[in-house]
Design a protein around this nucleic acid. Structure first.
Lengths: 153, 153
DNA sequence: AACTAAATTGCAACTCACTTGCATTTATAA
DNA sequence: TTATAAATGCAAGTGAGTTGCAATTTAGTT
């Protein structure tokens, strides 16, 4: 299985264009340069990227940003990509961990320099229990931090 | 102190127009009908309100929504109001607890019917410690849940 | 290689939350 | 009452994200 061959990064997998092609084929999507590059760039990035940052990385002139948004929407629908709100006025996107799609992490964003760090462990079981008692199912959460980082202090 | 006279609701205080006037005066703001009503409506509401919902409650024709946004911005600046992102494509606003401005709660929003419930307890000390070790200060967080509520299951 | 249907794209126009500049009105304090 | 600052309405602007449509590209089939 191709997933096992992939190199690991902090968050998920570093995808080669070939890997991206396999993923696209697996989900019945055409392998276009835009879709391939979005997956590759997201996998290479240490922090989640905005649509506009992705558009830059693909070469702003090489494609239209509406195609970037459309691809990101598709990737979310098939569970390949997750949309994050880090307290900015736009969304960021990250690859879902393909070996464990439930695994996710949180972020601290510096309110000064904008730098983003990952926080790996996530235990909210006391919250989850309480919400289950309130009758909610299929619960999801977003937990994001901001602060002033060491450099900016 | 007027704060002690105020009736308590689930989240903060039910403000009379008179209370609102005191608060405005205390912060050097003019006591206009718009500002007064925003505070009163926020204090009466069991769930955080969007700018547009507030505008409706004030009577959509009675004022311009830009004035609602401007007032909300001022209220945030002086720490009277907090802006929340509940995973919608707009912000909601709630009154800050005046007796304990650090006190806050979280929310579960039903992805089906949009209903919003409060979650009172908030212990994220293990996260806070980790982030402090990473060099971040003045840390803040947002933690919001979505799910499918009992009625919609 | 040629052909077809479905998927993808670019483009331009649009939506929607929110902001801003400016002229006018209102509140407050002297 | 009057001067000054604050607040407001209005209209235009921003910026992220969406959408309709026509043109292009992909992929599967002959």
């Amino acid at each position: 299985m191709y997933i096992n061959r992939m190199k690991k990064t902090c968050c998920a997998h570093a995808l080669t264009p070939r890997d991206a092609h396999e993923l696209l084929a697996l989900h019945g999507l055409n392998r276009t340069e835009i879709k391939t590059q979005i997956l590759v760039q997201l996998s290479k990035s240490k922090k989640p990227l905005s649509a506009s940052e992705l558009h830059q990385k693909l070469g702003a002139d090489s494609c239209n940003i509406s195609s970037v948004f459309r691809s990101l929407t598709q990737f979310q629908e098939i569970g390949l990509v997750r949309e994050l709100n880090l307290g900015e006025d736009f969304f960021r996107f990250e690859l879902v961990n393909l070996e464990d799609s439930h695994h996710h992490h949180h972020h601290v964003r510096c309110r000064d320099c904008g730098d983003i760090k990952l926080i790996e462990n996530c235990d909210l079981s006391n919250f989850e229990k309480m919400i289950a008692k309130m009758g909610f199912k299929q619960t999801e959460h977003t937990l994001e931090f901001t602060g002033v980082c060491g450099k900016c202090n």
